[in-house]
């Protein structure tokens, strides 16, 4: 199965809003997700600058290209698990 791409914005605003705790995904991957995700960081996705597309609150995380605002470690994991479940069902 293709790995799920998680891109975490670690620009200043996102970092102080909690991106650093989402970065834990780099080092401690939950057992059920080992080998299934690929984590990268982005210096600044610049979503914080203009409130376009209804995004207004960091931290921002892109999961397979889809933007999640106000992300947390748990929300990202829930989303990833949902994607995997959906793929398995198909």
């Amino acid at each position: 199965m293709e790995k799920i791409k998680i891109e975490i914005c670690v620009g200043t605003t996102c970092f102080v809003m909690g991106a650093s705790s989402i970065q834990a995904l780099e080092f401690e991957i939950p057992e059920d997700l080992i080998g299934k995700i690929e984590v990268t960081e982005s210096r600044c996705m610049e979503f914080c600058k203009d409130h376009k597309d209804g995004h207004h609150k960091g931290p921002f995380v892109k999961i397979n290209g889809e933007v999640m605002a106000d992300a947390t470690y748990d929300k990202v994991l829930d989303k990833v698990r949902a994607i995997i479940k959906k793929k398995e069902e198909n």
Binding site: G11, F15, T40, S42, R43, C44, E46
Partner: peptide
């Protein structure tokens, strides 16, 4: 971050996060 994005764009350089600098308090 934005400054780096500007330089990357204007000089057509490639810029990648350096994970060896990871720290809980300071962005990479």
């Amino acid at each position: 971050g934005t400054t780096a994005n500007i330089i990357e764009r204007e000089l057509c350089l490639d810029c990648e996060i350096d994970k060896t600098s990871f720290d809980k308090k300071i962005p990479c």
